[in-house]
């Protein structure tokens, strides 16, 4: 490994460390930042290529932030690049949350902290329902998807069946509908 490659791994780590440290709101919020750092500022990846990476990052399992970072790192500098970028993007959250978690226990029962969380919890409810409505708009496109959606909600609220089982069933159902349609796209 020569000096230039080491330099590149370090650069990747640092860029993604900064992205991890300064984006609030998770994966989707990181996308414009990654684009600015990687495409505009450094020219490491061409604009049309990064859009493909973003699309793949959202369609493979896992956190979008981690997927996108490792894909970008992989594209720029191979397997080691993927590791550096992922380590970089994860480390800030890991450090910050470990610090918060280590003292949160001592303040969690405080009257004022509890009151603050009455408000925060309400906002969390709002943000989750908002995310759900966005997803519903994209996913519920016909009778089949609406039925799958309704069955999922009822199953989760009324039974103890694992969400993982439901996701697998959804995927299989999608594939069956593919074969039924004779391999044609929708």
């Amino acid at each position: 490994m020569n000096k230039k490659m080491l330099r590149q791994y370090l650069d990747l780590f640092l860029v993604f460390f900064r992205i991890g440290a300064f984006t609030f709101g998770g994966g989707y919020a990181m996308i414009p930042l990654i684009e600015k750092e990687i495409v505009t500022n450094r020219g490491w990846i061409a604009n049309e290529d990064i859009l493909d990476l973003f699309a793949i990052g959202q369609s493979i399992p896992g956190a979008i932030a981690i997927n996108t970072s490792s894909l970008v790192g992989y594209k720029i500098a191979g397997k080691r690049g993927a590791l550096c970028a992922t380590f970089g993007v994860v480390l800030p959250s890991f450090l910050i949350i470990t610090i918060i978690a280590s003292f949160f226990q001592t303040i969690a029962d405080d009257k004022n902290v509890k009151a603050v969380f009455v408000g925060i919890n309400a906002a969390v409810v709002f943000l989750i329902i908002k995310a759900a409505m966005k997803m519903m708009k994209a996913a519920l496109i016909d009778k089949v998807t609406i039925s799958v959606f309704a069955i999922t909600v009822l199953t989760i609220l009324l039974t103890n069946i694992s969400p993982i089982i439901l996701i697998i069933c959804g995927g299989i159902l999608g594939m069956i509908s593919y074969r039924k349609s004779g391999g044609n796209s929708l």
Binding site: M133, V153, G171, G174
Partner: peptide, 16 residues
């Protein structure tokens, strides 16, 4: 097509 089946499940999971 796989995502056609997975997406409504995800939407249902988030809403629940």
């Amino acid at each position: 097509k796989t995502f056609y089946g997975i997406r409504p499940v995800i939407a249902g999971l988030i809403l629940s």
